[in-house]
């Protein structure tokens, strides 16, 4: 007979995976809303955030119950602690997706800025990071989790490139005060989106650190990793 505790641990894992899937989808929709200037998609991201928040609350409830009633040990204990931390990171990622969607709604109202290749690269790498973070959790793959650090450096690089391109855009002479204001507004909104993406990269890296803690009982937070 399977212990009830094992079933509850499975339930916790399934809830977390469900939250991860919804968060990843919200992030994907938010970035598509930005790229394709799709207001409807942006609104679905904003509307869907409540479901993710509710899952975070549900995970907190399950964790509290397991800690109080089961006194878990070793890997179970690490998994339960890791699950609360991962759910916090996912909830913050979902908030960043909402932020991206809200900025995209503004940008959809106005003509597009010039094409920004660094922004597309930033979206690509942060999406890959979120995917790697979730996969590392599903597959207990610490190596994948640790490699997120490397990917995060690439994300940071692209964020700086976006910033530089948009600063250049703002300082270049635009005829007419009204156009100048609009140009600055669109540039700042886009910079905010790039900061959200960069933050998603950081949060995905944190998830990788929690996975390493769950699987290997090692703490790689705030530590230099030799990738060689």
């Amino acid at each position: 007979m399977e212990r009830n505790f094992i079933k509850e641990l499975d339930d916790l894992k399934m809830t977390l995976l469900n939250m991860a899937a919804l968060t990843h989808r919200a992030f994907g929709k938010a970035t598509q809303a930005y790229l394709k200037r799709d207001e409807t998609l942006a609104r679905t991201v904003i509307a869907g955030d409540r479901e993710i928040n509710n899952l975070e609350l549900k995970i907190d409830q399950i964790v509290l119950k397991l800690l109080a009633l089961e006194q878990p040990m070793a890997r179970d204990l690490r998994f339960i602690l890791g699950a609360t931390k991962i759910s916090k990171e996912l909830e913050r990622i979902a908030d960043q997706a909402v932020n991206i969607a809200e900025r995209s709604l503004f940008l959809c109202q106005h003509p597009p800025l010039a094409h920004l290749p660094a922004m597309e690269q930033l979206i690509e790498v942060t999406d890959a990071m979120l995917d790697a973070a979730i996969t590392s959790f599903v597959e207990d793959d610490t190596q994948k989790a640790i490699k997120l650090r490397q990917m995060d450096d690439i994300a940071d690089k692209h964020t700086l490139e976006v910033l530089q391109a948009l600063i250049n855009n703002m300082v270049k002479s635009t005829p007419g005060a009204e156009k100048r204001i609009l140009n600055t507004q669109r540039s700042i909104q886009t910079i905010i989106i790039s900061r959200c993406l960069e933050r998603v990269g950081d949060l995905a890296t944190n998830i990788g650190e929690h996975v390493a803690f769950i699987v290997e009982a090692i703490n790689i937070k705030h530590q230099k990793i030799d990738f060689e």
Partner: peptide
Amino acid sequence: IFTRPSLKQTEDYITG
């Protein structure tokens, strides 16, 4: 032993 035992047998016992 109770947070990161080195052997699976120990881990299996203490986690029930």
